[in-house]
Design a protein around this nucleic acid. Sequence first.
DNA 1: TATTGTTATACTCTATAACTATA
DNA 2: TATAGTTATAGAGTATAACAATA
Lengths: 158, 158
Amino acid sequence: MSASNRLSQASERVGERATALDFAELNDHVGYFVRRLQVAVFTDFIGRLAPMKVRPAQYSVLILIAANPGRSQATIGQALQIERARLARLLHELEGRGWVERRRSPRDGRSHSLFLTAAGTKALARIKMLTARHEQTMAAFIGPKRRAVLLKLLREFG
Amino acid sequence: MSASNRLSQASERVGERATALDFAELNDHVGYFVRRLQVAVFTDFIGRLAPMKVRPAQYSVLILIAANPGRSQATIGQALQIERARLARLLHELEGRGWVERRRSPRDGRSHSLFLTAAGTKALARIKMLTARHEQTMAAFIGPKRRAVLLKLLREFG
DNA sequence: TATTGTTATACTCTATAACTATA
DNA sequence: TATAGTTATAGAGTATAACAATA
């Protein structure tokens, strides 16, 4: 990839010379663009979910508990790559809202089995309506066709 | 997209039933996969750049200053979407290493023009060798063809 | 009045380590 | 001894607000 192939440019404001910036090597880094897209997607997600005050990590945990009731914190954490110390605090917060219940496992006294409460199930239904709209916004932003290609690509090493 | 179309599964450890987890709605969220890829890329970047103790944000600032010497903090910050308060601290750190110089602009006493020092230019050369290897690792991980498609896709809304 | 840059505060996410209780 | 979970601490990234200097 030629470093002279500049695609990303930023327009300039008055005060300095109004010439575009050269993004140089950043144009060749997947990470740079992935990061910008990730920030844009999360910003929309957080704004859209603001009425329920749910952040991406909390959402992913709720979804996994709902789809896999009774699994342990270790299992959920490993699946989502959330460190166990952080997951403990995150679950403490969700438990405080009355959305999640932790039960001692009868088969292993060390582990906690996770479940949604009735209130948690009800909250998740509302949350899913908001995330559906978020995903629609993303599809419009990214473009439906590009979104499909992107999703397929990303899943292959997700 | 059907919610029954489950692609991402996690293998299970002993102790619980060794059945795979259902990722449910997460399979349909671009943000979920983008986030995981971004974390993987940044983890490799940070590890690879550890000898120079350079993090992604610092790297992007160094690249932009090198390619656009004399521009202001406001300009660099807006281009990279780094908030001015954070950029001030980040530059303070780079200045402390002797890599970056801030000069009062003769045309606007409020703004600082940014330059790399000789040491900064030398350091950046070493940094670029490490980032080149990082990018090779990413290409191997993602796959060269997928990487090209991904880069093209992401640039369109970068 | 508005902008540039600085300092300070707070919250999230990430990474550790130390601790308990169980196995 | 190893694992599951908790608590505590520290660093990075993000979002504010308040402030000084300059426009």
